[in-house]
Simulated scan of single mutants.
Amino acid sequence: MTRCNSKRITSILCMLLPYSAFAKSGSVNYSWGADALASMHDYVVTMMLYVQYIIYAVAGVFVIISVFQIYIKMTAGDEGITKQILTLAGACLFIVGATFVFPAFFGYRI
């Protein structure tokens, strides 16, 4: 069987096989109303708080690793220490900005 024939057979099989997933249409349940929206908001805010704590923990680990890398570079006498220190400072400023300044700017408190 040549390569062209196998492509034709594959394409014909893909066209003939039914799709296993279809979009749901017309089955939306609006009976919960505002109570469901309020409970969803509370759940999302709670999860945002947990995600923020996880981000703080991961950022703390990355800062410790980066500080050790800077220390090793300084003791070895390598170049590029200033760039690495500025990158670390910029990352810390971004974490502070993303968790405190941006929500306050948009008027949202976690």
Rank of each mutant, 00 (worst) to 15 (best):
M47F: 00
W32P: 05
I65Y: 12
G26I: 01
Y30T: 05
L13Q: 10
W32D: 15
L37K: 14
I12C: 13
K24R: 05
A38Y: 05
M40R: 15
S25T: 04
Y53H: 09
S20G: 12
G33M: 07
V45R: 08
S25D: 08
S25F: 02
V63R: 00
S66M: 07
V44D: 07
Y50G: 01
V58R: 09
A34Q: 14
Y56C: 08
M48I: 03
V58C: 12
A38L: 11
Y43F: 13
I64M: 02
T10N: 12
A38N: 08
Y53D: 12
A21N: 04
W32L: 14
Y53A: 12
M15G: 07
W32G: 15
F22S: 08
V51F: 05
P18R: 01
A57N: 01
S66K: 10
I12R: 14
V67I: 14
V63G: 00
L16Q: 10
V63L: 10
F62W: 10
S11Q: 08
D42S: 14
I64L: 06
Y50H: 10
I64E: 03
D42V: 10
D35K: 03
I9W: 05
N29E: 02
Y56A: 11
L37Y: 09
S31D: 05
D35L: 05
I55E: 12
N29Y: 00
G33A: 10
A36H: 02
M47D: 02
G60K: 03
A59D: 05
M40L: 15
I54T: 04
M48T: 03
V51M: 06
V51D: 07
Y19Q: 04
V67Y: 06
A38V: 10
W32Y: 08
N29D: 13
F22K: 08
Y56V: 03
V63D: 03
G33C: 07
A38S: 12
F22M: 10
A38C: 06
V44W: 07
S11N: 09
D35F: 03
V63K: 02
G33F: 06
V51E: 06
S25L: 07
M48A: 11
N29R: 00
S11I: 07
Y50W: 05
L17A: 12
Q52V: 08
L37P: 04
S39Y: 04
G60D: 02
